[in-house]
Design a protein around this nucleic acid. Structure first.
Lengths: 330, 330
DNA sequence: TTGAAAGCGCTAACAT
DNA sequence: ATGTTAGCGCTTTCAA
């Protein structure tokens, strides 16, 4: 920067201002600076800027998996909303593990992000303590935490699952099963299972048809294997709700391989409204939690919080939408 | 850090060494430092560390889309390979646009990454110049660039597509169509189209059945629409190759909706070996380019380059594997 | 094994 | 609109 200042015939401070789009720089000075910078092949050093100004322009984000279209949509919503303010996303994934999340959060905080977005409302005590002490805006997404850390943009996974059960019961189904993952890890998956059980009981139905499909995330193949197990163990099942559209599609494919008619003999519903749900044959009934909107809202909250125009913790509830399709009825 | 030093009764330098796992710190000193740090709720500041040591511990990565299982697998391979050395990934996506890639690269370089991984071998001149001047290891992945910038871990998209055409011809198919995206943007998609045309000509077959499905990435829905167009315009087509498994699955679904038998009347092949290809009914013939392996190899190259044990630009060719499944024959 | 001094490249704060 | 001074929180370098 000193070299540029010399070449442009100004002080380093003017160079700094020129790069910051600071209004109080003359057009001539700015032009001279930019030309000198170009000539010298100068690349601005955000590291030094971040240290001196104590503004990293980072927003840290943790998601369970980078390989998931729903979370990708959320990240895109976040990214688009934050880019306008020059904020960059520092992304990490937790593999659906709160211990890994704790380690990740600790590591991300070292980069001095200006805000932090974490997926889910369940964290280790130390992770909570770290976030508290960081004294930056925190947004929990994709969940409605019992004890929020800061702001929240989410929905009740249990209630959303209840919508699906209500729909199936309305379609005349009674012997409904749930295909999901290992309860201990994926907390959103566990909430969905809990929501399933609660809704079934509310309808006075048996809520014991629970198939454990393995560790989250449940793949299509695991969904298929779970369906095979279900058809073998409880052949009179007339509907299945799956923890995600991906496992639901796996279940559907298994029915197709076995010549089990969907929805005539078994109805199938998923969760997430992934693209496949709308396009497979028959298309899958599911719930759309508007992942992109979650990201956009979280970004908006962060901008407000950084502006200081958000005095109190915000709780933004997203209302998931039931997408009724042919896999659960005519 | 000064506060910790005071509390632990050592110098700031010892605190720094304790956090760096520097061997030349006594166990007693380290323990005292860690206890003091814990007590004060200290979080190490990577920004200052990066500025002084000129080591950011970042590796910047650009991918076309964050919402793509293949690229997600590559990022995971990279991430896993780099984490062992304490290197963190700084991820950006280009939306399949070389102009956006240029902007992104410029922005990422401001963070002073220690290496850069870019997807594809086509870039703007300025992007190339920026990477050259950055004087850091550069790895181009998912392609075999005509004029590599630095290291390469990739494969020939054209040749991989040729494998699919050869297979279809071997199955007795002759009137083969290609479903792909707008040629101007997705360079890997364009290479695949080129590979299709070349292979068809090699077999002495007509290579004009090219359906443009829109701007990349081609969705399942766009694949379905393209299939509908194909069946209407060129109903005697006996095989289709799609630019990706996702569009191929869309095409398959369209056939199912129309009662067009796959593979009996039309064979369908995709690209990428996404999970859906193995599990849909019938499963899709495709090509597996080993996305995770690409990431792992790129990570390995970067570590070697940073160690200085990689004097010359490396070119690591990945051999994609043809996955023959029922969608193209019995 | 530990410490003291200096400085990484920027920008806040103040001055003009 | 521009310049001067000092310093962000670490680590390099040198010394003990």
């Amino acid at each position: 920067m000193i070299d540029i200042a010399r070449l442009a015939g100004v002080s380093p401070m003017t160079v700094s201002r020129a790069f910051k789009d600071d209004g109080r720089v003359s057009d001539t000075a700015r032009a001279a600076v930019m030309q000198a910078a170009d000539q010298l092949g100068y690349v601005f050093d955000s590291t030094a800027s971040a240290l001196r100004s104590q503004r990293s322009d980072f927003v840290a984000v943790t998601i369970p998996s980078i390989n998931n279209a729903n979370f990708a949509d959320t990240v895109r919503g976040l990214s688009d909303g934050l880019r306008a303010r020059g904020l960059q996303i520092l992304l990490g994934y937790t593999d659906y593990d709160v211990q890994a999340e704790e380690t990740l959060i600790a590591q991300l905080l070292r980069r001095r992000p200006e805000a932090m977005v974490v997926t889910g409302g369940t964290h280790t005590d130390r992770a909570r303590a770290l976030l508290d002490k960081a004294a930056i805006p925190v947004v929990e997404i994709w969940d409605l935490p019992a004890r929020p850390i800061g702001h929240v943009v989410g929905f009740s996974n249990a209630a959303a699952m209840g919508m699906l059960v209500d729909h199936l019961v309305g379609q005349g189904r009674r012997r409904i099963a749930f295909i999901g993952g290992d309860a201990a890890r994926d907390t959103r998956g566990t909430d969905r299972r809990r929501g399933f059980v609660a809704a079934m009981r509310r309808h006075g139905l048996d809520a014991t048809r629970l198939i454990d499909a393995g560790a989250p995330p449940i793949s299509m193949a695991e969904g298929a294997a779970a369906m095979a197990e279900l058809l073998a163990r409880l052949p009179d099942t007339d509907a299945v709700v799956c923890v995600s559209d991906l496992s639901a599609f796996g279940a559907l494919s298994e029915c197709q391989r076995r010549g089990v008619a969907v929805p005539d003999r078994v109805a199938i519903a998923g969760f997430g409204d992934y693209e496949i749900a709308a396009i497979c044959v028959p298309p899958l009934t599911t719930v759309n939690p508007f992942p992109g909107r979650i990201g956009a809202q979280a970004a908006a909250l962060i901008l407000q919080a950084l502006d200081g125009t958000l005095p109190d913790p915000a709780l933004i509830g997203i209302t998931p939408q039931l997408m009724t399709r042919a896999s659960t009825g005519s």
